[in-house]
Amino acid sequence: MLVDDNEHDNFFHEREIKKVDASIDVVSKKSGNEALEYLKLNQEKENLHPDLIFLDINMHGMNGWEFLEHYNLLTRDVQSHAIIVMLTTSSNPADNKRAQSFNFISDYITKPLTQEILINISTKHFK
């Protein structure tokens, strides 16, 4: 799942993901709210749970941090599958450290998302 309010970034990243593996389903959500809604809505349907969430920090409305706070409050079975990667333009080390304070954030990478990064993540977490 891509959580980012920039449509262009979502477009590119989806392309890159599909280039790595075209069978991967990509869901884009333009805000933290929409992402949370999606997760809650599909609580029952396990096959719709995202395995990997790329989360932007700077979004209008609910930003990445706020999303994480709410995500923390979700039930385990909604959470458990997803690996969360902060994918952001921010090179601010404070953001990096803040990301590390959440134990369910696996990685902190800066945009753009490339095939290389994807492959790295997938080898790290899924194999």
């Binding site: 262009h8 970034d9 333009t89 090179s91 753009p112």
Partner: peptide
């Protein structure tokens, strides 16, 4: 500076990404 760089980087990234596309 952080905000500016972020705001400046974004359109650049968009440009270079679309060129790639």
């Amino acid at each position: 500076s952080y905000l500016a760089s972020h705001d400046l980087q974004e359109p650049l990234r968009t440009i270079s990404n679309y060129i790639k596309v």
